[in-house]
């Protein structure tokens, strides 16, 4: 049997969940033996070249590009997993939810304390992704098959979840893996 193919992405996240993947330490060598990576910042493959078995997504959706990217993942991945708080709930970026986008722009680009006193400008290049009215968790946009909680989920949790998936075993998150304090 050929190796399962894994793709990963960070949308409106901080790459902390990807760092947590790297925190599996030397087991990364085992992982490379177990799976093949396709589109992912880990190998820097930018576009899907084949259908993947597992997609891991960090971060929610804060702009139109995130949405396109997520939909692309859904199209190419048999199993799609929300990794971490931002993907599951929106996380820190979602703190802006409830504040009109217009006001967020004004604070960030026109009135904020770090804006050039000579005057700021709201980024409006047509090729920039368009900011969404709020930050969305992934499952509101596409079907998500599993959720790995944490900020970030621990390396142990990610490792157990991945190996369970690869071996076709049920995904069981024991209490020690989801207890955060």
């Amino acid at each position: 049997m050929s190796k399962p193919i894994v793709a990963t992405a960070s949308l409106a996240g901080c790459f902390g969940c990807h760092m947590s993947i790297l925190d599996i330490d030397e087991r990364i060598l085992t992982l490379i033996d177990l799976v093949e990576f396709n589109k992912s910042p880990i190998d820097d493959i930018k576009t899907f070249s084949k259908t993947c078995d597992i997609g891991l997504i960090e971060g929610g959706c804060c702009n139109s590009e995130n949405v396109e990217n997520l939909r692309d993942f859904r199209k190419h991945c048999k199993i799609l997993i929300s990794v971490g708080e931002c993907a599951i709930m929106g996380g820190l970026p979602a703190l802006r939810n409830g504040i009109p986008v217009k006001d967020c722009f004004a604070e960030a680009y026109l009135n904020g304390p770090t804006v050039d006193p000579a005057g700021g400008i709201i980024p409006n290049d047509p090729e920039l992704p368009i900011i969404l009215d709020r930050v969305y968790p992934l499952h509101e946009i596409v079907k998500i098959d599993a959720f790995l909680p944490g900020c970030p989920p621990s390396a142990e949790l990610i490792w157990k979840a991945l190996t369970a998936l690869i071996e076709g075993k049920p995904l069981e998150l024991t209490y020690d893996l989801v207890k955060f304090d």
Partner: peptide, 19 residues
């Protein structure tokens, strides 16, 4: 619908944002 508010401020369009 989700991009409407921002597009109203920046004048962006989805077609252009998709390149």
């Amino acid at each position: 619908a989700a991009v409407r508010d921002a597009a109203a401020v920046t004048g962006q369009t989805l077609a252009e944002a998709r390149h």
